[in-house]
Structures are given as structure tokens and as C-alpha cells.
């Protein structure tokens, strides 16, 4: 790890005043230290925002949920209002990493962590995302890579919390010296075709200062498929939000993780459910539609049947139904 100097910021204003071009903000620090230990990031200064008071709170009112960027994944997992009303969010948080990491990692840091692609994470591969000219995953070891929008750079977005947050129409409040802006998380994450060197719209010197989730009576569910049960990065994960009128779905929101370089909104699947009864058949049609335009690489087409299964089951679970072939 490179040497750096260290600033403990007391307030957002102080953090913004302390950051330089060569600096990184540090919240939980988990992904940042990982990048620094691997030589992928080498900031000359860390501006520690972890101790800024007021940014580590979850508040709920009739307008929705406001989550401070320093809220840990454990706080999300254990918060009674989140468990009750925003179930997919709590479920997703509980499946990320290990208990130790969930105690350290923050919501803000989880959203802006860098991808896990092993070519990106290796100093030995000067890949396109790091300023090179080649995406080594295209004809390399691409088992865990994207099945959509994967021709420029085949990363999958690593944020587990983003998947339900996008499905719930979450928004990021972003603060810079010049003021605040609020952006839908769906627009916050960007495609490599927009700028391969980044995964989101955050500009240098900007800080996420809140995540806002609008109140909703939609029913939500989340599912993550990894290679092992205890802890792992997802092979495929999905968040489903269904606004229901009786047994009909008035508006569906289906977001896939592990599928694309950003949380992937499966609009074709949503269209199959909007203004429809939720049944085993409609859920299956939606799951098939979600995968219809997939462009898998040589070694990751196995993700397609996994997504078809977990999208179908998670739609049914969000609707309060039991999927065929799944133990209760």
C-alpha cells in the first residue's frame, strides 16, 4: 500500500474542503483498502468521513426512507422499519459479504465500490477500464462477467445494495462545494459505452450525502445466487418490486445484479407483468423476457437459466406466492 496523509473530517463542508485531486474520501474503507493493497488505487490523501456526525442514521417518515451514506450494511439488515417495509433492501444487505465486513462497509461505499473483474483488480492487466486498449474478459476467463452490454468492458457492477435500491426508485443526494443535486440511482450508474473508466456519474470532489427511497406500498423481494451459501459475490441476483391492485400488478420493477456493468433494469420483464395477474405462467414469461436479449460471452451463458429461475421465483415470492419446485 502506498503512503498517504490522513485527514479526519468533522463535517461535509470540511471533507469537501480537504479533498484534492489526488485524494480519496474514506467511509468504511473496505473497498478502498482492497484497491490500495492491490496497487489499483494510490491516493496521496485519505479524507476520513467516517466520523462525520449525522450521516450514519436511518430515518423514516410518510415520504419514505432516508439513509445516511455512513449507515453500515448491518444497520440496514437489522433496522425494523427497513425489514418491515423495504424487505428486499434488508434481504440484500444481509447477503452481502461477511458479518465482519457488513459491520464496517457503508451504504455509500457499497454503491461506489469498484468492480471485481479479476483483470481490473490485477496490476498485471492494463485493461480498458484502467486506460488500456483491451478488455481481457472478451476472450479470457469470463465466467463471472456481464451477459448484457458487455462488448466494451464486461464488468458486472459489484454493489449488492444497488439492486434493490434501483428497483425501489432510490435516489442519491450528491453534495459538492457548489451545492447539492439529487439523481435517480438508475441514472447514477452508467454504461462503459458512456465512459469506460468509471461506473457512475459522481465527479471528483462530490460526495453522496444521502440515499432517499420513496414511500411505496409495493411488495418487494430479493434473491441472490452465489456459488456457496455462507458468503460470496453473487453470480446472479435480482430485486423485484410489485405495486399490486388486488391480484393484478399495476407496476413492476425488476432489477438484475451480476448481469451488466450497472444494475440492469429488465424492462421487457416488467412489461410482461404490468396490468397482469401474477401467476406461475406470467412470472415465467417475464423471466424469459428478461433474458431474451442477453449476449453472453464464451463462459457465462450458464447465467441465463439461473436468472430465468431466480427472476421467476422472486416475482412469485414478492407477490406472496410459492414457486413450483422450491422448498417453503
Amino acid at each position: 500500500m502506498n503512503r498517504f496523509d490522513w485527514v479526519n473530517a468533522n463535517s461535509v463542508d470540511q471533507a469537501l474542503a480537504s479533498v484534492t485531486d489526488e485524494s480519496s474520501f474514506k467511509a468504511g474503507g473496505v473497498d478502498l483498502l482492497d484497491l490500495m493493497k492491490d496497487g489499483i488505487a494510490s491516493p496521496s490523501r485519505l479524507v476520513n468521513i467516517r466520523q462525520i456526525s449525522g450521516l450514519d442514521q436511518i430515518s423514516e417518515d410518510d415520504k419514505g426512507l432516508r439513509i445516511g451514506p455512513l449507515v453500515t450494511l448491518t444497520q440496514i439488515e437489522e433496522h425494523p422499519a427497513v425489514q418491515k417495509t423495504y424487505a428486499a433492501l434488508s434481504e440484500a444487505a444481509s447477503r452481502i459479504a461477511t458479518p465482519q465486513i457488513r459491520n464496517m462497509a457503508t451504504v455509500g461505499g457499497n454503491l461506489v465500490q469498484r468492480p471485481r473483474c479479476w483483470y481490473f483488480r490485477s496490476e498485471d492487466f492494463h485493461c480498458r477500464k484502467k486506460g488500456g486498449t483491451h478488455c481481457f474478459a472478451q476472450d479470457g476467463e469470463n465466467d463471472y462477467h456481464a451477459i448484457f452490454d458487455n462488448r466494451v468492458c464486461a464488468i458486472i457492477h459489484p454493489s449488492g445494495i444497488a439492486v434493490p435500491l434501483v428497483a425501489m426508485n432510490g435516489r442519491a443526494e450528491i453534495t459538492a462545494k457548489k451545492g447539492k443535486r439529487e439523481v435517480a440511482l438508475e441514472e447514477f450508474f452508467t454504461s462503459p459505452t458512456h465512459d469506460v473508466h468509471r461506473e457512475n456519474i459522481l465527479e471528483p470532489g462530490e460526495l453522496i450525502t444521502a440515499i432517499v427511497v420513496p414511500a411505496s406500498e409495493a411488495r418487494t423481494a430479493y434473491y441472490k445466487q452465489g456459488e456457496k451459501e455462507s458468503f460470496d459475490w453473487p453470480i446472479a441476483d435480482v430485486a423485484v418490486s410489485l405495486a399490486m391492485q388486488g391480484s393484478r400488478c399495476s407496476k413492476a420493477s425488476i432489477v438484475l445484479g451480476g448481469a451488466a456493468p450497472y444494475p440492469y433494469r429488465a424492462k421487457a420483464a416488467e412489461a410482461k407483468l404490468n396490468n397482469s395477474e401474477i401467476t406461475e405462467d406470467s412470472a415465467r414469461a417475464a423471466a424469459d423476457a428478461a433474458m431474451a436479449n442477453a449476449t453472453p460471452l464464451e463462459k457465462n451463458a450458464y447465467k441465463i437459466p439461473i436468472f430465468e429461475a431466480i427472476v421467476r421465483r422472486t416475482i412469485l415470492r414478492a407477490a406472496g406466492m410459492k414457486a413450483e419446485g422450491v422448498a417453503a
Binding site: R3, F4, V7, D13, S44
Partner: peptide
């Protein structure tokens, strides 16, 4: 306040 906080290290 809003001034830059003091740095320590490297």
C-alpha cells in the same frame, strides 16, 4: 467549521 482539517502523515 469549514476550513480544511489538519492532515497527519504520511
Amino acid at each position: 467549521g469549514q476550513e480544511q482539517a489538519g492532515a497527519v502523515g504520511p
